[in-house]
Design a protein around this nucleic acid. Structure first.
Length: 420
RNA sequence: GUGGGUGUAGCUCAGCCUGGUUAGAGCGUCUGGUUGUGGCCCAGAAGGUCGUGGGUUCAAGUCCCAUCACUCACCCCA
């Protein structure tokens, strides 16, 4: 039996309403904040991601779905969306058309990692990017909008963490300080963290090993080494959040894996999912556009994982979905009436009523059972003596009441159903 | 890439430890409970190469090995 590729999932009809609800809320929130939807191809030239995300990151060095196509071009299924959005921004000169571009997306992403709770090889993100302004209002807006989506989905067990990575020069200075602090404690670090000491020292803060955490709790903190302007910007972001009463926690240990971040970084974590608890992550990237060959353009954005959000919703039982139902089920008493039943059903459907009927010549009892199973509000029963008199029976399922209508008065039936 | 757990009907699982005649339950599905009517109830039916391959044994769903898949955690991230 051929099965779905490891780490990919079918979204079945029984699940689709949850997805549609999340997407509807995302579109609504982003629309209220005047973000415009953008869609980019699922695959790009590999160089876009290796340059944009950073050659040394895990995503680029070991997680990308990369293949050479028939024209010998190395292409990659997008592992995240920011690089693609920035590429489109540059390619279509959006920066010249509008001073500020506020964009959002909902899209599948691909990373070849080992799947676990809340982590898949094809997963879905929604996110936003604001290109063309360095104003901290937009940094705050990233948190406000993503947090808003989650609270509208009824999520409670959330934590917003925020930090600033400043500008590259202060970060480099700080790395030296950190390196010095850790150099005499190197032997006490875990094996993984010893590797990180060389590859990306900041990420030792992420370590879940208790010994590492002890050491890092005492470590000097990047926030103390920021330049004045970065500090000021950071304060503006937090005071904007204070103004809107979004609860957050400054976490000097929050470092993020992608190379392109400058200044603000943030995450929204859920306590209701497994160990992959980051529902959303983002930050400012003032150097990325230039790095990808565009004009110097500040940017800020976020990405949120829809599967993780849905997992949190399920664990918190926060999603209320409307009960599924159809308007009317057309029952026929004998199979000679198949054509008539079909005509009536089409008439209802053309009148914008959701209508179903039997396709397997089943008994009346079976048809009624089916109508009940589909949660039909009404059944229309055709056949027998009434039909010979030119009449049909309309049954309201919840009450069990039946009324007789003339067969040629379907419009009356339609308006009767619609008026309820 | 590393480690743990689990693979028996469409779904959730029992049976495995202490091998032994036709492999079970609940839910779901289908049919029926009198001529043309759902939900509740009752009856019946369909549906399983016991993940796959090998081994031990007179005998394997049950024991052993391998393999694959799923799953959780590390790593990393959404």
């Amino acid at each position: 039996m051929i099965k779905a590729i490891t780490g990919t999932k079918d979204i079945l009809p029984e699940d689709i309403n949850k997805w549609n609800k999340v997407e509807a809320i995302v579109r609504n929130v982003m629309n209220n904040f005047n973000y415009k939807e953008i869609r980019t191809p699922v695959f790009e030239e590999t160089a876009l991601f290796s340059r944009g995300i950073g050659e040394a990151t895990d995503i680029v060095s070991k997680e990308m779905y990369t293949f050479v196509d028939r024209s010998e071009t190395s292409v990659t299924l997008k592992p995240e969306m920011t690089a693609s959005v920035v590429r489109a921004f540059i390619e279509h000169s959006l920066g010249k058309k509008y001073g500020l571009n506020k964009l959002f997306y909902i899209s599948p992403m691909f990373r070849q990692e080992r799947p676990q709770a809340g982590r898949f090889r094809q997963f879905h993100q929604f996110g936003a990017e604001a290109l063309g302004s360095d104003n901290p209002m937009l940094d705050a807006e990233m948190i406000i909008t993503s947090y808003k989506v989650m609270t509208e989905l009824g999520l409670k067990n959330l934590a917003v963490k925020i930090n600033s990575l400043g500008i590259p020069s202060s970060r480099e200075n700080y790395k030296k300080v950190l390196k010095e602090y850790l150099s005499d404690k190197f032997d006490q670090l875990s094996e993984d963290s010893q590797k990180r000491f060389e590859t990306n020292i900041l990420r030792i803060f992420d370590s879940k090993v208790e010994g590492d955490q002890k050491i890092m709790n005492e470590a000097p903190v990047l926030l103390d080494y920021l330049d004045e302007e970065s500090k000021e910007k950071f304060e503006q972001v937090t005071s904007l959040l204070d103004g809107i009463k979004i609860p957050y926690e400054v976490d000097p240990k929050l470092v993020r894996g992608l190379d392109y971040y400058t200044h603000t970084t943030f995450e929204i974590l859920s306590g209701s999912v497994g160990s992959q608890s980051a529902l959303c992550g983002g930050g400012r990237y003032n150097l990325l556009v230039e790095q990808l060959g565009g004009a110097q353009t500040p940017g800020v954005g976020f990405a949120a994982g829809i599967e993780r959000i849905l997992l949190a919703c399920e664990n918190e039982n926060s999603l209320t979905l409307p009960e599924e139902s159809i308007d009317i089920y057309v029952v026929r008493l004998d199979k000679e009436l198949t054509q008539k039943a079909n005509e009536i059903a089409v008439t209802f459907r053309n009148a914008n009523l959701s209508t179903e009927l039997d396709y397997t010549q089943r008994s009346v009892k079976a048809q009624m059972r089916e109508a009940n199973r589909l949660n039909a509000k009404y059944t229309l029963i055709i056949g027998g003596e009434e039909y010979e008199r030119g009449e049909v029976v309309l049954k309201e399922m919840k009450l069990g009441e039946q009324k007789i209508f003339k067969l040629n008065s379907l419009p009356d039936i339609i308006s009767a159903i619609k008026s309820v």
